[in-house]
Write a protein that binds this DNA or RNA. Structure first.
Length: 271
DNA sequence: CGCATTTCCTGGAGGC
DNA sequence: TGCCTCCAGGAAATGC
């Protein structure tokens, strides 16, 4: 489940390999995952020089000359890899783009198709579905920003998951951050103790930074751009650990449903 | 408007 | 072993 740390990991890798290179042949195997500019993707991308690869929220943005932004959203099962172009093509590979002079190609694969690709040209007039408005970057939030955002009567976990408010957190890092801050996910945000707000912000930033250092969390599908697993899974304190002891107090981790999502808590630390 | 719930999709897990 | 059902989740769509 690629969230901010996973997408950041992939973006950093691609930003080492791609800038100053030029895109070559483009093969689209499923047109319905491509949005934005309605022209055939090859016509837009082939021969264009790559300027940079960045992350915004859970999205990865490849900027090309002139004023072309290719946006990838990995959804739930999406993978974006740089692979030798002779390597066998895995099932559900929807898009391949040769990177000239490297013997490699960029491959976008997404079995569940919750993700997608947006080709934004000019002023980005043709956007299409599933590219809504984004809230603040968690790592850039100030305490003042955060206090303003959490001042509403809504379950804190649902609020943290809302990409229109804070953009980049998903199920794993919400649960980990709430545990680190000792906050129950059902707590109404506006009912947080004043001292808990800076604590939660620190927990969010600390959790994300640590996860980036470990190249993200691989549970099933996620891989780095060179196909490797992220190792933050071994650092998880609550997520996917139902029944196992809390590493702080030894109490068994419990699972509940919040905002329609599996949610893992320590009932002792997050009372 | 604001918030909660449902829906989309496939592979893997588990029951029998 | 094979067949069936259920579940995972990001975020748009729908419901209240």
């Amino acid at each position: 489940m690629p969230e901010l740390p996973e997408v950041e990991t992939i973006a950093r890798h691609l930003n080492e390999a791609l800038p100053h290179r030029t895109f070559g042949r483009v093969v689209v195997s499923r047109t319905d995952i491509i949005h934005g500019d309605p022209r055939p993707l090859g016509g837009v991308l082939t021969g264009r020089r790559i300027l940079s690869v960045r992350r915004r929220a859970k999205r990865l943005v490849i900027e090309l000359e002139p004023d072309i932004h290719l946006v990838f959203h990995l959804g739930m099962s999406g993978r974006l890899t740089l692979s030798p172009y002779r390597r066998p093509i895995e099932p559900h590979t929807h898009l391949r783009i040769v990177v000239r002079g490297t013997g490699q190609e960029l491959r976008f694969r997404d079995p569940r198709r919750f993700g997608g690709v947006w080709c934004l040209t000019g002023n980005g007039e043709y956007v299409g579905k599933r590219l809504g408005k984004l809230g603040l970057e968690p790592l850039d939030m100030t305490l003042k920003d955060f206090r303003r955002l959490v001042d509403r009567n809504r379950q804190i976990k649902a609020l943290l998951l809302d990409q229109g408010i804070i953009a980049g957190l998903g199920n794993i890092y919400c649960d980990e951050s709430l545990h680190a801050a000792g906050i129950h996910p059902l707590t109404p945000a506006s009912a947080l103790d004043p001292a808990q707000v800076p604590c939660l912000l620190k927990a969010i930033k600390g959790t994300l930074r640590k996860a980036i250092r470990f190249k993200g969390t691989t549970l099933i599908d996620y891989r780095t751009a060179d196909g490797l697993e992220g190792s933050f899974r071994t650092k998880l304190r609550v997520y996917h650990r139902e029944g196992q002891p809390c590493q702080t107090c030894g109490t068994a981790i419990e699972r509940l449903i919040v905002a329609g999502r599996s949610t893992f808590i320590c009932p002792q630390c997050q009372a």
